[in-house]
Design a protein around this nucleic acid. Structure first.
Lengths: 222, 222
DNA sequence: GCGTCACTGAACAGCAATGTTGACTGAGAT
DNA sequence: ATCTCAGTCAACATTGCTGTTCAGTGACGC
């Protein structure tokens, strides 16, 4: 009885964080529909009125939640956005970046889910800071000698990101335990690396595709 | 006045179709949240009571809508599900399949959006008939000599599908007219084909990645 | 012509979520 | 010590959607 009616100690920042985390979990589980202030407040074990004090309206809560998730994702993959300008652009290790992404995605499928949902709802997803940074990295990679010539970095990054974030959603249903999840992560990063190195088609059997690609590349240069 | 109160001609099948189409448009635009029977009925220019006549509850309407979209997608890409068993499994033309997918995706971004949402919401997306058929096609391709050896068809199909369906969502914001949209479709199918043929990494610069891949492939064979 | 059936319009109760208000509490400033 | 105010909370009015019901209406098949 005491515990139930015990007042939360006054710590606005932590309270806000608690609410945002609850909201992001609900968003991942049930989508936008599941995010009601009642449900969020209940999950966060906070009074509904308190939630309204932190976020004027439901819309603003959702906006803040998406921002929060996006920021978390960004930091997990790229580190502190403040210092990102300082780093050497030459050091683009795509394989390592992809490995980090895969690991993070398998560890935090809810975050990925929210990010995907946000992209689906957004009127212009290409403004998303995380995507921009990722696409930028791949662009810098594509400009090096390490990459195959003529890569369309935008297409390439959409494919990679969509794949990496979707894989846990397909895979999770089959992973009963930690061990299986690790195996699935490994399967994915192996395959994405393999596709990056060798592609999926045996080039020697597809002369006409090679011709088509060459023709299209030629046309592009006009 | 006359037009406003004009009664809809009696045609249950067409009415049902109208409702489903309105529902799928709302679903694509606003997600699950946007699909209220009031909104759907309004968009379909049908009485709310009529909608309830066709679909007992909101849940059943949504279920039927997703089914409807899934079926539409399946037919557009694979043709009639009834006759699919009759076809020769040897004729797996991945490039053509991908081209068809890209075109369809750019022409019908709403359908893709709904499909992606459904996958995000589903507890086990790998049961989805469209994905199964697609993954099956890629598996059959992977088993031929035309493919590079050792492809993980499941990973490969998740990457491809996610990429193909996401591309229009990123691209659409930038496509002002038909012409630009065509260009973006072309960009995507070109890039996916290029990646399929040659990958993204210049193999000669990555001996250590090649070694890692070989080691992992060796380990898998135990 | 007559009954059937898809559709319309309007009303109703029930419910859950929204957003508002005002009272209370306790940590930190004066 | 007490004043202040951000933070917390319960209760209220309001809104909008759901699902139901029912009395019509007109198109179509028999």
């Amino acid at each position: 009885m005491e515990a139930r009616t015990r007042r939360r100690v006054r710590d606005p920042i932590a309270t806000r964080e608690t609410i945002l985390e609850a909201a992001s979990n609900l968003l991942a589980k049930d989508g936008l529909e599941g995010v009601s202030l009642s449900a969020v407040a209940h999950l966060a074990a906070v009074n509904r009125g308190t939630a309204y004090q932190h976020f004027e309206t439901r819309e603003k809560l959702i906006e803040a939640t998406i921002q929060w998730v996006s920021d978390k994702l960004f930091r997990a993959v790229f580190g502190d956005p403040e210092t990102i300008g300082d780093r050497r652009v030459e050091e683009v290790d795509t394989a390592a970046l992809t490995d980090r992404l895969c690991d993070f995605a398998m560890e935090n499928p809810e975050i990925c889910r929210v990010w995907l949902q946000q992209v689906l709802a957004s009127p212009d997803p290409s403004q998303d800071p995380f995507w921009r940074e990722y696409a930028g990295s791949l662009q810098r990679f594509a400009d090096t000698k390490l990459a195959m010539p003529g890569i369309d970095a935008e297409v390439f990054s959409v494919m990679n990101l969509a794949g990496v974030f979707f894989w846990p959603i397909f895979a999770r249903a089959h992973a009963a335990n930690e061990e299986e999840r690790n195996a699935l992560t490994k399967r994915f990063s192996h395959e994405i690396l393999r596709l990056s190195m060798y592609g999926s088609m045996n080039a020697s059997h597809f002369p006409e595709v090679a011709a088509r690609l060459a023709a299209e590349d030629g046309a592009k240069r006009d």
